[in-house]
Design a protein around this nucleic acid. Structure first.
Lengths: 226, 226
DNA sequence: GGACGTCCGTAAGATAACTTACATTTTATA
DNA sequence: TATAAAATGTAAGTTATCTTACGGACGTCC
């Protein structure tokens, strides 16, 4: 896999020139990760930024009871990780590869210097953080105020917008997702999530053909009614 | 009130030199806000950054049913607001003055240029956003996985650390907060929040003397037990 | 191709939290 | 200081969701 050309595809760096990309390349190291492996965790923190080049990574926190809450699922081109001054996850977050994955590990000290010399990149990072904050605000509002049906419907719509393709009236969610995964994102249990999804399937709001698909028009109408 | 000296106290700008502060001063406008007034809202968005100089501001989102969820409460020296590329709140957030308040309104376009010329400020902004993201992750995990008792205890501890003073074993929360305010932060109702707080008071975990105070040691022990 | 592990469907019983309701206390304001 | 308004205390009834439980489907690994 050609690391340099891959880096240029990462949204954070898409505006950089060739030689600037080469600088990033020098301060980073590409590494393959097996499905299921935990990349960083509170127990084994790594002060670095990770660029997700290929695959799917789940960021989750764990309860004192061992229950998990998934704060985000990342796909190609996204960033995560934590350093002393930049933090795209947090010190209590586990990052787990949901599929076989390639990540680029960036040396922090060098990167912070790089940012000081490239304010555009800093603005881009601010932008990425801003968006993640918004999404997190939005999701926690749903979890705080809405019932599980609503939360699941909202999540599926959001995912289909972020990671989906349109197929007539159906919008796919191009992600590997079990019912437990969904439950962990909306703060519910596998069982109630299964029940809710079953009823959605009966109502023709979602269907499973390989990936999960959602009838966005119908879903939006129901979100308004609930 | 001396605007220039006030600006230097805002954490984002604390490292700036006198003449840089004067630049910020020129691009900003100070304004008094009455208690209860809504400063920005989805209905009246203002593309600007607001520096909270004096007072207490609540950021909240609203449900389609009209229920509110408070994503953050800000005090002196904090920033909020939303522009096209920088966003410290989000487009669905209401900012309401909980007390009589002074804010500084910063012109966005000028500020973005300023950032490009002052990468240290950009890094500081990244830092502020990072921390807010962490706190939001943490709180949504609690809301998703824990019961109301736990959520309230956790919130009170967090607030006492952020805005409190130590008085022997008691840690005060130097904020004007009603039970409804607390309920809106943990995704519960005023009634159950009142009940929980009553029981905490009976157990000697909290007390009300002007401001609310919390017995941090005892609180932490209970958090571990639950 | 058999066996094991993961995932899904569904249901009965338990429970935390919400809703509704109203009395009481505290705080603001004229 | 009187009066209104806001905030708090508490309780009975209702409900959504969790817990526990188990059978079946599906995939995958030896």
């Amino acid at each position: 896999m050609d690391k340099l050309s891959e880096i240029s595809q990462i949204s954070l760096f898409e505006e950089l020139k060739k030689d600037e990309l080469r600088t990033i390349d020098k301060m980073s190291e590409m590494r393959p990760i097996k499905k299921g492996a935990v990349i960083v965790s509170p127990e084994r923190p790594i002060p670095a930024l990770f660029l997700l080049k290929q695959g799917q990574v789940r960021l989750y926190r764990m309860n004192h009871q061992g229950r998990q809450f998934t704060v985000d699922i990342l796909t190609n081109g996204n960033i995560f990780g934590e350093t002393s001054s930049i933090s795209l996850t947090d010190e209590n977050v586990y990052a787990e590869a949901m599929t076989d994955t390639y990540v680029c590990i960036i040396n922090v000290d060098e990167f912070e210097l790089f940012i000081e010399r490239h304010p555009k990149i800093a603005l881009k990072l601010i932008n990425i953080l801003s968006n993640r904050l918004k999404e997190t605000y939005s999701m926690s509002e749903k979890i705080a105020l809405s019932d599980v049906k609503y939360r699941i419907l909202f999540l599926l719509l959001k995912l289909s917008e972020k990671e989906g393709k349109r197929h007539h009236e159906w919008q796919s969610i191009e992600m590997k997702l079990t019912h437990a995964d969904i439950a962990n994102m909306v703060g519910s249990t596998r069982e109630t999530t299964s029940a809710v999804l079953s009823s959605f399937k009966k109502q023709g709001i979602i269907k499973q053909e390989g990936f999960l698909s959602i009838n966005a028009d119908r879903a939006y109408k129901i979100l308004d009614e609930i």
